[in-house]
């Protein structure tokens, strides 16, 4: 048994144990905190499986954003779950066992874990992504080149989903639905905590600087628009939590945020349209410069910034929507 297998199995065991505990807990605040732990362990597993970009995103999203959103949702509803009656447990268990059994049966056809000659690895596209991309695009991080260039249209679709989700949350909870329901300033303000305030104020510029670094360094190392957007949003969320929502909304007014949500998407689309006007196909960055590789660099940078803007604006807006809502009891 190699060291890799040992670490892999222990991390997976921790994951399954955490999942079991989460599924049994009826106190939902505890469940939310444990699911943050779950995300951290998942991020470690992603690093082990060579997916550094994904690990980065999971750590920022799972611990930073989704925990805060879950806690915000819980603060607005009940944080204690009713006992699941016995008659409800059986169908769920039956479905889970059946589906799990089917999956295990079907997994016999899967290639061995980590095998280098599985259909996925032997496909000619693998060579295109890993080696041809060095000549086509010339950036070392192939995840970025696949994300922003080869599968740019796909990523545009994903960004559209994020955009739609942001609009949906605004429609459900935003001030458009309840114009009177404006700000609320009570327990979310942590103004008494002086140490926390000093340290947060000290770290804030570094968080934002780090987000920018992640955005612009995505060509060479792990990073890119999605990660940068989420880190930006996490910074704003921290600011809002520690210094109060009023202050956070003075720093980034809601109108600016609402304008930034479609701006990123339009920038992305705009790059594609400019490519078409210059005689290429949609999102074919070669046309942006006389040298195709330079064009690709510029296109990827613009597209990643567009992703970062929309993701950061949507996540921050979602947080403000939850935090501004008054609890009804």
């Amino acid at each position: 048994m190699t060291v890799f297998t040992l670490i892999n199995i222990s991390l997976l065991a921790i994951l399954v144990a955490t999942a079991l505990t989460v599924s049994r807990l009826r106190a939902l605040y505890e469940a939310a905190m444990l699911s943050a732990l779950f995300s951290l362990v998942t991020a470690c597993l992603f690093v082990l499986l060579d997916a550094v970009d994904v690990a980065f995103t999971e750590a920022a999203v799972g611990v930073g954003i989704s925990t805060v959103l879950l806690l915000g949702g819980l603060a607005l509803t009940r944080s204690r779950e009713a006992v699941t009656p016995r008659r409800r447990r059986l169908p769920g268990a039956a479905v889970a066992i059946l589906a799990g059994g089917t999956l295990v049966y079907a997994s016999q056809d899967l290639p061995a874990f980590g095998s280098a000659d599985s259909p996925v690895q032997r496909h000619p596209l693998t060579d295109t992504y890993l080696h041809q991309s060095q000549e086509d695009i010339g950036i070392p991080n192939t995840v970025t080149s696949v994300l922003a260039s080869y599968r740019g249209l796909d990523t545009l679709g994903e960004l559209l989903v994020v955009f739609t989700a942001g609009v949906a949350v605004l429609a459900l909870l935003g001030p458009l639905a309840h114009p009177v329901d404006a700000r609320r300033r009570d327990d979310l303000d942590l103004v008494d905590y002086r140490v926390l305030r000093v340290i947060s104020a000290m770290l804030m510029p570094f968080i934002l600087l780090f987000a920018l670094y992640v955005l612009f360094h995505g060509d060479f190392g792990p990073g890119g628009g999605f990660q940068a957007g989420v880190i930006f949003a996490a910074g704003f969320v921290l600011y809002g939590l520690v210094f109060g929502l009023d202050k956070a909304q003075q720093v980034v007014p809601r109108v600016v945020l609402w304008a930034l949500i479609p701006f990123g998407l339009l920038l992305y689309l705009g790059v594609g349209v400019v490519n078409m006007l210059l005689g290429g196909s949609f999102l074919d960055y070669d046309t942006l410069s006389s040298d195709p590789a330079a064009g690709q660099h510029l296109g990827i940078l613009l597209v990643e910034s567009a992703i970062g803007i929309t993701v950061a604006a949507v996540m921050t807006t979602v947080f403000f929507s939850f935090a501004n809502r008054r609890a009804t009891r």
């Binding site: 905590y193 140490v195 926390l196 770290l203 570094f206």
Partner: peptide, 20 residues
């Protein structure tokens, strides 16, 4: 450096909140 700043802060905030 960042761990030295954030770790103790987190412990302090937890204990302070519990005391309050």
């Amino acid at each position: 450096l960042f761990l030295a700043l954030t770790g103790p802060t987190a412990s302090y905030v937890l204990a302070f909140a519990a005391r309050r």
